[in-house]
Amino acid sequence: MLRIECPHCGARDEAEFSCGGEAHIARPKEPDKLSDAEWADYLYMRTNPKGILAERWCHTFGCRRWFNIERDTVSHEILRVYAMGEPRRESGT
């Protein structure tokens, strides 16, 4: 059971949160200009790294706010918690 530092409420058990999957997948500004393959890339294709993953979490049973974290998908260690809209770190994948 992960312990996640909600930026608004503090550290809470994973059970209070929902995971929104990979972060920094921006919705294309002009979907009509994309090919089917480009649209599929946005819609379905994921990096799914073994290692550091930037992902979105929502404190569903708390403040209901979304935020980003960087988490190691092997050790489950959480390396960083940051606001929605903040860019990922240079070193992140």
Binding site: S18, C58, R64, R65, W66, M84
Partner: peptide, 13 residues
């Protein structure tokens, strides 16, 4: 509800 919040907070802040 969760879905709408998601769009609002993450995509259209």
């Amino acid at each position: 509800m969760a879905w709408l919040e998601d769009w609002l907070q993450c995509e259209w802040p």
